[in-house]
């Protein structure tokens, strides 16, 4: 389940018993965002969802700052390649989250991390630690 739009966050099926409030969602690594909800059935390939999120980031990054401008493209390349990335992926997410100019770049890492969390083993290696 994707909560709050593309940069909101993902919750696994057994995590959905949560009040619809900013604070409660944030506590589970999601966000209210624009308050949209998108449900995915089990047939959707987790990597496709991950790639979708990175495609969104890559398409929407304005390019004004480097972490997001380059990071969004690099993330997409990783997701498209499909093999779990090495440790530099985690360093990149940390940089995007901590140093991007605006909330867009700062939130991308939360979104992809929460997706990896929601899928657990099915996205093993994509936690970005």
């Amino acid at each position: 389940m994707q909560v709050g739009g593309p940069l909101g966050g993902f919750l696994a099926a057994d995590d959905l018993d949560v009040p619809l409030s900013e604070r409660a969602l944030a506590a589970r690594g999601a966000a209210m965002g624009h308050a949209g909800l998108v449900a995915f059935d089990r047939d959707v390939e987790p990597l496709r969802v991950l790639r979708h999120v990175w495609e969104f980031a890559d398409a929407e990054s304005c390019g004004a700052c480097s972490p997001c401008r380059v990071g969004s493209r690099r993330g997409l390349e990783h997701a498209a390649a499909g093999t779990p990335p090495g440790p530099e992926y985690g360093r990149m997410l940390r940089l995007m989250a901590g140093a991007s100019l605006c909330a867009f770049g700062r939130r991308v890492p939360d979104a992809v991390r929460s997706l990896a969390r929601a899928y657990g083993d099915r996205l093993a290696g994509w936690e970005g630690r």
Binding site: S66, P67, V70, G71, R73, R74, R91, M92, R94, L95, G98, A99
Partner: peptide, 14 residues
């Protein structure tokens, strides 16, 4: 230091 290095490295990677 690592964060700054990552920032430059990411730019260079492109």
């Amino acid at each position: 230091h690592g964060l700054r290095r990552d920032a430059v490295e990411l730019i260079v990677s492109a």
